[in-house]
Simulated scan of single mutants.
Amino acid sequence: MQHDSFHSGFITIIGRPNVGKSTFLNRVIGQKIAIMSDKAQTTRNTIQGVWTVEGAQIIFIDTPGIHKPKHKLGDFMVNIAENTLNEVDAILFMINAKEGYGRGDQYIIDRLENVKKPVYLIINKIDQIHPDELFELITAYKDRYSFKEIIPISALEGNNVDHLLSVLRQQLPEGPQYYPEDHITDHPERFIIAEFIREKAIQLTREEVPHSVAVLIEKIETKPDEKVLVQASIIIERKSQKGIIIGKQGKMLKDIGIQARQDIERLLGTKVYLELWVKVQKDWRNRDHYLHEYGYNQDEY
């Protein structure tokens, strides 16, 4: 059936670290494209997810959590998040229902004062609070900013996500279909594969290795047996972290590889050989050369 008009737009998701932005994006897209962790500041670049239905397309931009930066990488992350605010059709300001209002939220609200786009307050993780607490939350935020609408959801359980999508779709301006129907992200496979490996390194080492982990894809090639060979280096900042990533008799590195390979195979739809190395690059988060090499290029935003 031919539609008289097509509606499309760009919507950015902002919020403090660890409010569930990546979980929401993966839920909407129906496939894992953004890495998830209960550690703050897991997302470092903008992750674009493309949601297409008949007659409409939304390009969601999942930004790094807005926080007070402590190094050049932190500056890069916050600049990305703030730079998207005036370049989109609408903004989803996501909060964690369990944590409630905090100083970090006010920091974001202050930046929204200069934004001329509709802002929706998305109260995520409502599955973790009592319904009576929700009314208090809505009241606390409603008095602080003139939100277009306040919508409670659970990205993890899927509660009210379809309603949110319906509301957003109705607000979309007329526009072109930017991506083909089967397109779910604008990021190359190389980027997503690196993110999957980084996610496993963060998850499995827990507090022992903080966010000084980067992943550099050295090679991707299809072998004669149709399997894909992926070679990658896990970059850390200190020699002491190298032993943690490798683990006793190489067990940690092996576990990272096994779990990352499963995600990569789902993404590529084929069997994968994954070879991992660990390299020490001292203080890379404060060095422009390494930030650029590892994919954190400020000039692109």
Score class of each variant (00 low, 15 high):
residue 9 G to V: 12
residue 209 V to H: 00
residue 298 Q to F: 14
residue 263 D to I: 01
residue 291 L to M: 14
residue 287 R to D: 12
residue 261 R to I: 08
residue 65 G to V: 02
residue 100 G to Y: 04
residue 234 I to K: 08
residue 116 K to C: 07
residue 162 D to L: 07
residue 254 K to H: 06
residue 56 A to S: 15
residue 87 E to F: 09
residue 259 Q to M: 06
residue 115 V to E: 10
residue 258 I to E: 07
residue 82 E to Q: 10
residue 256 I to S: 01
residue 40 A to L: 00
residue 255 D to G: 01
residue 6 F to Q: 07
residue 205 T to C: 04
residue 46 T to I: 14
residue 84 T to P: 00
residue 290 Y to S: 14
residue 125 K to P: 02
residue 122 I to W: 10
residue 263 D to C: 02
residue 1 M to G: 13
residue 6 F to M: 10
residue 97 A to G: 06
residue 287 R to H: 15
residue 42 T to F: 00
residue 48 Q to V: 09
residue 199 E to P: 11
residue 297 N to R: 12
residue 64 P to Y: 09
residue 93 F to K: 03
residue 163 H to V: 12
residue 98 K to F: 01
residue 56 A to W: 10
residue 214 A to L: 09
residue 229 L to R: 02
residue 266 R to N: 10
residue 270 T to K: 10
residue 257 G to Y: 02
residue 110 D to P: 14
residue 258 I to T: 08
residue 110 D to V: 12
residue 261 R to L: 05
residue 43 T to A: 09
residue 104 G to I: 14
residue 64 P to H: 11
residue 288 D to E: 15
residue 269 G to I: 08
residue 72 K to L: 15
residue 11 I to V: 15
residue 166 S to E: 08
residue 84 T to F: 00
residue 61 I to K: 09
residue 127 D to M: 04
residue 127 D to C: 05
residue 267 L to K: 02
residue 270 T to P: 00
residue 23 T to A: 13
residue 175 G to K: 08
residue 251 K to I: 06
residue 12 T to Q: 14
residue 87 E to W: 05
residue 53 V to Q: 13
residue 257 G to E: 02
residue 123 I to S: 09
residue 258 I to L: 10
residue 45 N to D: 08
residue 266 R to D: 08
residue 182 D to C: 01
residue 28 V to F: 08
residue 13 I to E: 15
residue 152 P to D: 12
residue 170 Q to K: 14
residue 66 I to S: 10
residue 233 S to D: 11
residue 201 A to V: 01
residue 230 V to Q: 00
residue 271 K to Y: 01
residue 107 Y to S: 14
residue 188 P to N: 03
residue 90 A to I: 02
residue 296 Y to M: 07
residue 64 P to S: 13
residue 256 I to M: 00
residue 53 V to N: 11
residue 35 I to N: 11
residue 245 I to Q: 02
residue 217 I to F: 03
residue 193 I to H: 05
residue 60 F to Q: 01
residue 38 D to Q: 06
residue 177 Q to F: 13
residue 23 T to S: 13
residue 122 I to M: 13
residue 143 D to I: 11
residue 48 Q to R: 15
residue 126 I to K: 04
residue 287 R to S: 11
residue 188 P to T: 03
residue 194 A to I: 04
residue 103 R to P: 07
residue 213 V to P: 00
residue 278 V to S: 01
residue 285 R to L: 10
residue 2 Q to D: 13
residue 269 G to E: 12
residue 177 Q to I: 11
residue 10 F to C: 03
residue 241 Q to S: 09
residue 216 L to D: 02
residue 12 T to I: 12
residue 235 I to S: 15
residue 97 A to K: 04
residue 83 N to F: 07
residue 111 R to A: 09
residue 266 R to C: 05
residue 265 E to F: 01
residue 90 A to S: 05
residue 142 K to P: 04
residue 235 I to H: 15
residue 131 P to A: 01
residue 260 A to Y: 04
residue 197 I to R: 06
residue 250 G to Q: 11
residue 293 E to P: 04
residue 147 F to K: 05
residue 248 K to D: 06
residue 35 I to L: 11
